[in-house]
Computed example of a mutant assay.
Amino acid sequence: MGCRDSDTVIASLCCICFWLGLVVLMPVMVALYSSPSSPYFSVDLFDNQAFNMTSPKNLTIHFHLRLKNRNSAIGLHYPDPIKITFSYFPNVSMMVTLAEYTVDSFYQGNGKTKNVRDFVETNGVPTVLEGTDMVAFRVDLVATYKHKKVGSKRHKVEVGCVVGVNYTTSQKLQTGFIGMAEPGLDSKLKPPPRDDYAGY
């Protein structure tokens, strides 16, 4: 076999490998790109913080928020500030807001995780959940995001979680990061928005 024939065989093998790789990878890339996932949020309250729940002063809440882009092939853009609300339940029928925090607009690369470590000063002292020795904190997050691809629409996400803390020992009932999910029954405890057009 001459050099020319050998080169032809090598070129043919390379071409076959290229097309086989394209056939295998194309469906995977299409699936990743055409059906992108929503971001995942989790939070760790009072991260490495020593605090006294019985102090008469306003409580400082230290937190560590994680925002995960679960898409390995598509970036995410958060065009609006992300709003985070810290509240607590004095009883099972109401929720009291303690503080609010915002994260500025940003872009998040493929598969990247953004970490936000900070603290907020509350405007009051939380009380125990009625009938228990636990303070039931709630963290709510409202954000809008767009996938970095042609024709992507803006999506809105509202998620939250509850973090229980023993009032006497200041020990958290859940340790580490808690995943934030779409609000359930507890979100209905918020006062309904005022309807300024009622009766018109």
Rank of each mutant, 00 (worst) to 15 (best):
F86C: 05
L129A: 04
K149L: 11
V92D: 08
G124C: 05
N91H: 04
K146W: 03
D133V: 10
F86S: 02
V92S: 13
D133L: 12
V120M: 05
A99H: 12
T102D: 05
V150P: 08
L141M: 05
L141Y: 01
F89I: 02
T113P: 02
M95L: 06
E100K: 14
S87C: 15
K112C: 01
T102P: 05
T97N: 13
R138K: 15
R138S: 10
D140R: 12
F89Q: 06
L98W: 09
Y107Q: 07
A143K: 03
M95H: 06
S87Q: 14
M134H: 13
T122P: 01
F106I: 00
N110M: 14
K148R: 09
F89W: 04
N110H: 07
N110C: 07
P90L: 05
F86A: 02
V135T: 05
Y101T: 13
T127S: 12
G131T: 10
E121H: 12
V116T: 11
D133M: 08
V116M: 03
V96R: 11
T122L: 01
V120Y: 07
T132L: 14
Y145L: 01
V150Q: 08
Y101E: 07
F119P: 00
T127H: 11
A99C: 12
T97R: 15
E100N: 15
V125L: 06
M94C: 08
V135F: 02
T132P: 04
D104Q: 08
V96I: 15
F106P: 00
D118A: 15
V135A: 08
R117W: 13
K149T: 03
V92M: 09
F89E: 02
N110D: 03
K148D: 04
D104G: 04
K114D: 04
F86I: 03
V142P: 07
V139C: 11
Q108W: 00
E130H: 15
V120G: 06
T127A: 10
F119K: 14
V142Q: 14
D133P: 02
G109S: 14
T132A: 09
V125F: 09
Y145G: 00
E100Q: 15
T122F: 04
V92Y: 08
V135H: 00
T85D: 13
T127G: 15
G124M: 12
E121P: 02
Q108G: 00
G111K: 01
V120D: 05
T102L: 03
Q108A: 00
T102M: 14
S105R: 07
T122Y: 05
P126K: 03
L129G: 03
V128M: 10
V128G: 01
K114T: 13
S93V: 05
T113E: 02
T144C: 12
N91E: 09
K146C: 07
L98F: 11
T113G: 06
T132K: 09
V96L: 12
V103R: 02
F119N: 13
K149D: 02
S93F: 14
V139W: 03
T122A: 11
K114C: 04
